[in-house]
Design a protein around this nucleic acid. Structure first.
Lengths: 113, 113
DNA sequence: CATCAATATTGACGTATATCAATATCTTGT
DNA sequence: ACAAGATATTGATATACGTCAATATTGATG
């Protein structure tokens, strides 16, 4: 389970300038986080909620996966900087970090040829 | 090695509306293709060339990987619709398919909250 | 048709990781 | 402090896949 540094500047443009091996590693790790259907469905579910957030307890049933597995996916996305989390009483709420997805989006920008 | 259908409509928005399990599988498979540093470096190298294309023979040395491994990565990206290929005499040229990356980019669009 | 160069495929191996059951940890309320 | 519920971690298992050496295939050319 490779974790990402959320503070690191991500993502360098993929298609402009020279992409170093280190930068490629970093961006690839983020793509790999999105390369899992269960995680995409979690993101999609969160996006559909008010404030783009939900209690972890609400994320288990819609996926049809076990609680530990969902917890694992949430952790992976949290460590990748795609989610924030916040405890509220007994529950932990996860929230989308739109800036992170925006950064990835801009990394895919294609230079005018 | 899961292959993608290049003709299929990809990609449905991740963060708008309901993402079915099948759609999540499809988009995740495309993200997984990008989740490999060597492939990102290949894309980056192609983007730096005139016409965003290069002979396969020019893609081996810059990566420091064996010829079969590079061939494998090119095949994966070709089957994912990210590259086109064309034979020219003895050589096979691979070219970026910008529309495919654009489609992925738009799938990451975040709805206004 | 034979040869050569470029690319692709096969098979083997190692690593990464998704998944779950079992268990641990953490918070709140009594 | 204890009990109960929510979430996280551990350990085990299975699968996906990156990598290379060896080999096959393909196309051009003599």
């Amino acid at each position: 389970m490779q974790s990402l540094n959320p503070i690191s500047i991500c993502c360098p443009p993929l298609l402009t300038g020279h992409l170093t091996a280190e930068a490629a590693d970093q961006v690839a790790a983020l793509f790999r986080v999105l390369g899992e259907p269960a995680r995409l469905q979690l993101l999609n579910f969160l996006a559909s909620r008010p404030n783009a957030e939900a209690c972890a307890c609400h994320l288990i049933e819609p996926l049809g996966l076990s609680q530990p597995t969902v917890s694992h996916h949430l952790k992976v996305m949290y460590e990748a900087g795609l989610l924030e989390k916040e405890r509220r009483g007994n529950w932990i709420y996860y929230r989308l970090v739109p800036e992170r997805l925006d950064a990835l989006r801009s990394a895919l920008t294609i230079p005018q040829q």
